[in-house]
């Protein structure tokens, strides 16, 4: 596919790299000279200019693009770029700068197909790394839905069950299964669940805690052993990544301890 990325800073450039690695065609737009040079040094086509101007986006061949990523740190530029992209029938993705705005843009910005708040993803990653435990948040799908990877432990109530015997709460679905260190794959019914196996589950926040109890088990000693932190609340706390709070710090860190 063909993508136009506005902003060649840390978010834009990294996104462009991932897209290129997967074989896509990327054109970037950047108005800052040193930032532009850095992207060009890495082999990217970079148009010089302001991504909120239609002529600049046309130069970046917006007419042929499938999607536009407005990933600068400037909300006005990002939103305007999405409006133009929408006009050219591109899928539009907009970066926002503060957590509380996520809901506002999802609700009101019809021109924007998807909202990205990089700090939230970074915080989830940092927290997972710090906890090092048996549960890992992969993505927030919607305000109330999260995808998590859980590692089965010996103490898990489902240890020894097969996938078909596994009964998760109504608002939770198994998406993928990985036997031990093996890559994740679509689960088949007769696979057994054993210590060290990994399950990727899509779950509503309301039932995440139940899911964790079923799949990971929850004795304090075990949680501490798995997390290596001595904190039995670590995994529980991760599950409390709330969807829509007023306080920005809450949203950024997924709750404080």
């Amino acid at each position: 596919m063909r993508f136009v990325i506005i902003g060649a800073g840390r978010v834009g450039l990294r996104t462009a790299r991932v897209l290129r690695d997967e074989g896509h065609e990327v054109t970037m737009v950047e108005r800052d000279e040193p930032t532009r040079r850095r992207a060009r040094d890495q082999g990217f086509a970079v148009v010089d200019g302001d991504g909120s101007r239609e002529a600049v986006l046309e130069e970046a061949d917006i007419t042929a693009a499938d999607a536009l990523g407005a990933l600068t740190g400037d909300l006005n530029v990002n939103f305007t770029a999405c409006m133009i992209g929408n006009h050219y029938e591109c899928r539009t993705v907009m970066r926002i700068d503060e957590a509380y705005r996520e809901g506002i843009y999802r609700k009101y910005a019809d021109q924007v197909d998807e909202i990205i708040y990089p700090e939230r993803l970074g915080a989830i990653g940092a927290k997972n790394a710090l906890l090092g435990g048996t549960i890992r948040a992969i993505a927030d799908i919607a305000p109330h839905l999260q995808v998590v990877e859980l590692t089965i432990t010996d103490a898990a109530p489902v240890n020894g069950y097969t996938i078909s015997e596994l009964h998760l709460p109504a608002d939770a679905t198994v998406l993928a299964f990985g036997k031990g260190e093996a890559p994740l794959e679509i689960p088949t019914e007769d696979l057994s669940l054993e210590d060290g196996d990994r399950l990727v589950v899509l779950a509503d926040f309301d039932v995440l805690s139940d899911v964790r109890q079923l799949l990971v088990g929850e004795t304090a000693a075990l949680a501490a052993a798995n997390a290596g932190t001595g904190s039995s609340s670590a995994a529980t706390e991760l599950l409390e990544t709330e969807p829509e709070r007023d306080s920005e710090s809450d949203s950024d860190t997924g709750g404080v301890n």
Partner: peptide
């Protein structure tokens, strides 16, 4: 006539 620009800190727009 006046225009007031308002910066929020909540999603409850």
């Amino acid at each position: 006539t006046a225009f007031v620009m308002i910066k929020a800190n909540t999603g409850e727009a």
